[in-house]
Design a binder for these strands. Sequence first.
DNA 1: GGTCCCCCTTACGAAAAGGTAAGTACCGCA
DNA 2: TGCGGTACTTACCTTTTCGTAAGGGGGACC
Lengths: 121, 121
Amino acid sequence: MAKAPRTGPYICGIDAALDVVSGKWKGLILWELDTHRVRRFAELRRGLPGVSEKMLTQHLREMEEDGLVHREVYAEVPPRVEYSLTESGRALNKALAPLGAWGTERIRSEGIETVPVSPHG
Amino acid sequence: MAKAPRTGPYICGIDAALDVVSGKWKGLILWELDTHRVRRFAELRRGLPGVSEKMLTQHLREMEEDGLVHREVYAEVPPRVEYSLTESGRALNKALAPLGAWGTERIRSEGIETVPVSPHG
DNA sequence: GGTCCCCCTTACGAAAAGGTAAGTACCGCA
DNA sequence: TGCGGTACTTACCTTTTCGTAAGGGGGACC
């Protein structure tokens, strides 16, 4: 339950960046938040097929501590919490784009199975 | 000991790419092989401070199965094994470059600890 | 003869990551 | 009264990952 904001020490930038995005759902969370700008907890949940509530909160908290995600709580009833990307999170997503393209090409050329759930497959 | 060449199913390209690079040393291995073109086992070992032989072979085998790394064995005594990147591995490394820049900037601005070991910090 | 180097492999165990299931507190709807 | 929806938290367990230690089958060096 990594609570310290990333300990390091790191050897190079890739090292540091991978540390921040590794986590079963973090790439997808970044993607969801980037395409939708703002998402509520249950929306993210529905957007990530198979994620448990525990993992989603856990990952969101870590990403908040890492300064990637902004969490806005509205004191309403029923509760409303909105998640969005910070400046740093958006920059990370831009940096992730070529990697995504590489992965897409790999999926295509290798004929790897995909899960056609979100519209941005 | 992931032996199947990546099961998937994946939701998007980032998902697939992160699956291939996640592993404690894979980012560094990619980096080492990219900067040096060709490296022997013991050279890689010395280049990755703290890696165990087991983890290094394990990661190299997985990356070989994933088509990122080429392994050339010379039937000599003492044995000589040379590792290099495949076309796909080089493409991955190119795709990783912006991520590395993001991480470097993050390290710089956050004042995160680093390990100054390799000359390409 | 002893020790080092090469490139691994295997067995064992700890630690981290992830999954399951239930509980919390409050509200709207029928 | 009971169910569903909101956004979690907690406890417990399994799976995966990582590390440690040892061995192995040859040379080469001293």
